[in-house]
Design a binder for these strands. Structure first.
Lengths: 216, 216
DNA sequence: TAGATTGTTAATCGATTAACAATC
DNA sequence: TAGATTGTTAATCGATTAACAATC
């Protein structure tokens, strides 16, 4: 059943289901059970069922869910059917890597152009334009861009965020390792590698410690 | 007080405190209160205090925490003091961007080399070696590498993960948008952009919907 | 001392899991 | 029908927040 309020934790799991369903070969059976999905993704089956209940209009007992319509429902729910235009600020290595990643199309994301304080090129390898920061505001307004991707150094991220918001942007994908202060109606999604590294680092420390103790 | 079990949610917030503390100028006062930290990062002050209590040996009422020792304590806790060697698999755009990112040093991460199924270069721009996949196993063993970074396409990620684990790796930083099946003692940290995009996309959809309703 | 601030104990909230009834 | 599977209701778990006592 659609239209319900879906929590962020559920939301974050949906792309996982979608990717798995899409990765299945056409030769696979047209139906799949929550049990099968759960075991493939290493999750609890009740959780999978609850999650799917939020976006689909249900599976059938003994049969499971229709793969095709499940894919459709999740994509529909996530809004991958209608494209979102975005701008990217900071044409450094990470920025260019993101510009060049063609996979974003699958998520309905279209990066129109990059902006940089000191552009060294006028186009990316893929032929997308790189403009000077001074063009940002008018570009965003002209193209009614709603999403900005920040790949500048931490020290400039807040300033860039302010400019994006002034240009009418409603959501920011922030790759700069810093907190952004924004008005309540603006969403900031932090892609914080430091966070992941912390988890990894602490795990490895524990591993090393454990190993030493075993050796004793 | 150190040595307690710290939950993942706390762990993930620590890098935020650390980055903010490190970004403060030397001219700033030597002490900082949880209240100040909280408001700077847009968090609740009780949460900040509880988090800090897990890694530091406490602040002083009315004074706050010593900035320097707080930085030390968090870095110590996260293991940023002793470097972790890592290998990276998949020398594509994203892989090269990560190889070239010098900021990882701050997190005690040192990427020794890249591996690729069909390397087009023998070195990265920064002079780090790029080897053929066939060298992976012996390299990992020889250098006692504990961490692997996967930046290959989703279809090859599981296969690469298996090889890494065979080579003795204990933690995987997975940039491929797919679930990895690994033994229980191996940690997989997914850096899943699809997850972030889902959150952003759903937010924008809601925004657009809202706007339309206002216009009516 | 008074007040800002810390740290802890209790209450709330939300998300996950378990138990079970419904269904094909 | 019997059994696999769905979906829901209740129980558990963990994390966040609120209230308060301790402290400098």
């Amino acid at each position: 059943m659609e239209g319900k309020k879906v929590s962020k934790s559920v939301l974050k799991r949906l792309p996982g289901y979608l990717a798995y369903l899409k990765s299945m070969p056409d030769s696979a059976p047209p139906n799949i059970s929550a049990t099968a999905l759960a075991s493939a993704l290493g999750m609890g089956e009740v959780q999978v069922r609850k999650d799917l209940a939020m976006v689909s209009d249900g599976g059938r007992p003994k049969i499971g869910y229709q793969r095709e319509s499940l894919i459709y429902d999740i994509e529909q729910f996530l809004g991958y059917d209608n494209t979102t235009d975005a701008v990217l600020i900071g044409a450094g290595k990470l920025g260019q890597a993101l510009m060049g990643y063609s996979g974003f199309e699958d998520y309905g994301l279209n990066i129109l152009a990059a902006f940089d304080a000191a552009p060294t090129l006028s186009k990316t390898e893929e032929g997308k334009p790189i403009y000077h920061m001074s063009k940002l505001d008018s570009f965003c307004r002209a193209h009614k861009v709603l999403m900005g991707i920040i790949t500048v150094p931490a020290g400039h991220a807040q300033e860039v965020a302010d400019q994006l918001i002034a240009g009418g942007i409603k959501a920011i994908w922030n790759f700069a390792p810093t907190h952004l202060d924004v008005p309540p109606n603006i969403l900031v999604q932090n892609e914080n590698m430091a966070t992941s590294l912390a988890v990894l680092s602490v795990h490895l420390q524990a591993q090393i410690k454990e190993e030493k103790e075993v050796k004793k």
